[in-house]
């Protein structure tokens, strides 16, 4: 078990190092930050002065070495644009992003699992078709279109909800819904398929035969077995959300999260911020995968047994 954990940790460190290195050189290959942050109209000498001031005059290898050494001390550097420590900027941004993420995951679970289950159970009635129709729509509509539609109806026309910012509970509704719609739709479909698969199994016939009430058959025996599929899909979804899902939604709703930070850092070649952002997202993805692995164990005793 210890060996397994160590191997896993080592692989994680190597993965991170590869990612850090890749980002470090890729961002520099794509242009010098000075040309993106007020480099207009500078003579070659003045430009060189600024490049030196921002510490970008050293060779890439030297900069890379300096960066790794700072990283080892837990220092992510100073933003080239805002001139504040990257950690300060990130701290401002992590909270709002996590709020959106948690909201979206909870909403996705709360809607998709019951909806998918119902769609499987009532697969031959109009209720099932309605659910799948809605899921198809949710799957097809891009989140930025949905976001603007929500703003247009709930905010612009009806004036029920604030259009942007993250000051209160009401501010959450539209961004969370817009962010979740795609994931709800896709998880509903996966849940339905997983449930259909399970519902045709022999052990369900057995459960019914021994006289269990139908809700108990569905929720205890069927859903529990479908959970493995649902969890792995959800894990992928959360990883996707953490990695890129928020960028558009955060911009539309002026929600100052990590996604918006990453995009503006990329556009301005704010290397330290961009590097931190990619590391943070990579770590989140790795962490989520590990959590999903653990959740498998909880959902399916066979996984637990196989490991020990």
């Amino acid at each position: 078990m210890l060996e397994y954990a160590l191997a896993r940790l080592l692989r994680m460190v190597v993965t991170m190092l590869v990612i850090v290195t890749g980002v470090f050189f890729a961002t520099r290959l794509s242009g010098n930050a000075v040309d993106f942050i007020g480099g207009e109209g500078l003579s070659a000498a003045d430009r060189a002065t600024l490049v030196a001031y921002y510490g970008l005059d050293a060779s890439w290898l030297e900069q890379y070495w300096r960066y790794l050494r700072a990283l080892a001390e837990g220092n992510f550097g100073i933003s080239l644009v805002e001139r504040r420590p990257v950690s300060t900027i990130a701290l401002e941004r992590v909270g709002p992003s996590l709020q959106l993420l948690v909201g979206a995951v909870l909403l996705t679970l709360a809607v998709a699992v019951p909806a998918g289950t119902l769609a499987a159970v009532y697969r031959k009635s109009w209720a099932g078709s309605m659910i799948m129709g809605a899921a198809f729509l949710g799957y097809a509509i891009p989140n930025f279109v949905l976001a603007v539609l929500l703003i247009l109806t709930l905010s612009f026309w009806l004036g029920w909800l604030p259009s942007s910012g993250n000051g209160s509970l009401a501010h959450f509704v539209m961004p969370v819904v817009a962010l979740s719609a795609f994931y709800i739709a896709s998880l509903t479909r996966f849940t339905r398929n997983a449930m259909l698969d399970v519902l045709s199994q022999d052990y369900l016939r057995t459960a019914r035969a021994k006289g269990l009430a139908e809700p108990r058959v569905i929720f205890k025996h069927a859903l529990r077995n479908a959970l493995i599929t649902i969890l792995s899909v959800l894990g992928l979804q959360i990883a996707g959300l953490a990695a890129a899902g928020n960028v558009v939604i955060e911009t539309i709703f002026a929600w100052r999260g990590i996604g918006e930070m990453l995009v503006s850092a990329a556009l301005r070649r704010d290397y330290p911020v961009l590097q931190f952002g990619v590391i943070a997202v990579a770590l989140a993805v790795i962490l989520i995968n590990t959590l999903v692995d653990l959740a498998y164990g909880a959902a399916d005793p066979r996984v637990r047994l196989a490991r020990s």
Partner: peptide, 13 residues
């Protein structure tokens, strides 16, 4: 409020 449609809505609201 970088997005124009959101900005206009915020004003209208």
């Amino acid at each position: 409020i970088p997005e124009m449609a959101t900005r206009i809505t915020a004003l209208k609201n």
